[in-house]
């Protein structure tokens, strides 16, 4: 369970509040620059809000003793130093949270990087970097997943795989929060943000409302239709 409670950050976010519940994929949607990444970074303790609280299972991220076992996060890039191999990157991440080494092989298998495990992260393609980032997120088999633009840089097969994967995670009872500027996503709940304010939230059907598609609803909510 993720709770964002009246989170503000000067000029970027204005009293953003929403929740993401277990067993559901929550889409955090908005145009570029709407405040999606800022919100996610605050949730993960990377940035500080000027007001409000962001918690995961009622605790701020920074106070989680072994955060990787609670939250798996995918942000821009792989997070791996260029000179380190995929396996070495996962090894230090696993060690930092007391996770078994055997798990490294498992997550590499899940994201399809077994073959590239010894390759230096700096030589990875964009898609491979994303997969490595996802592998790191899955290390602790976390009940909560926070993914910032997970589809960026993926090829069509990768996008298909990611969709299936996210739905499967939710079906397993995990809380999945994904931010995206894409709209054609398999989401259960939707939070629409525009210019730092939440402009709509609810189930996908509620947010769609009278509109013929989520896309139409989104465009009318964010005023992008006036382009």
């Amino acid at each position: 369970m993720i709770s964002i409670d009246r989170v503000s950050r000067s000029r970027i976010l204005h009293e953003v509040s929403f929740e993401a519940r277990p067993g559901r994929v929550t889409g955090f949607l908005g145009p570029n620059g709407a405040g999606k990444t800022s919100t996610v970074r605050i949730l993960l303790g990377l940035d500080r809000p000027s007001a409000g609280t962001a918690t995961i299972n009622n605790r701020p991220y920074a106070s989680l003793p072994r955060p990787l076992t609670v939250v798996g996060a995918l942000l821009d890039g792989s997070g791996a130093h260029r000179a380190r191999s995929a396996r070495a990157h996962l090894r230090w991440m696993a060690a930092s949270n007391g996770l078994p080494r055997a798990r490294i092989g498992e997550v590499l298998e899940i994201v399809g990087l077994t073959e590239a495990a010894r390759k230096r992260a700096g030589r990875f393609s964009l898609g491979m970097s994303r997969r490595l980032g996802l592998a790191a997120a899955l290390l602790g088999d976390p009940p909560v997943l926070v993914l910032d633009e997970p589809f960026n840089g993926l090829d069509p097969a990768g996008i298909h795989w990611m969709r299936e994967f996210l739905s499967r995670c939710a079906a397993e009872g995990r809380t999945v929060l994904l931010s995206s500027h894409l709209l054609d996503l398999p989401v259960d709940d939707v939070v629409v943000i525009n210019r730092g304010r939440v402009v709509a939230q609810g189930t996908a059907a509620e947010v769609r409302g009278e509109h013929e598609s989520l896309e139409a609803a989104f465009l009318s909510l964010t005023g992008a239709a006036s382009w």
Binding site: L44, G45, L46, Y61, A62, S63, L64, P67, L68, A73, L75, D76, G77, S78, G79, A80, H81, H89, W92, M93, S96, N97, A136
Partner: peptide
Amino acid sequence: DARQMTATLLAMP
């Protein structure tokens, strides 16, 4: 803009 620091802080907030 992606840096290893992000991963490090995620592992050790």
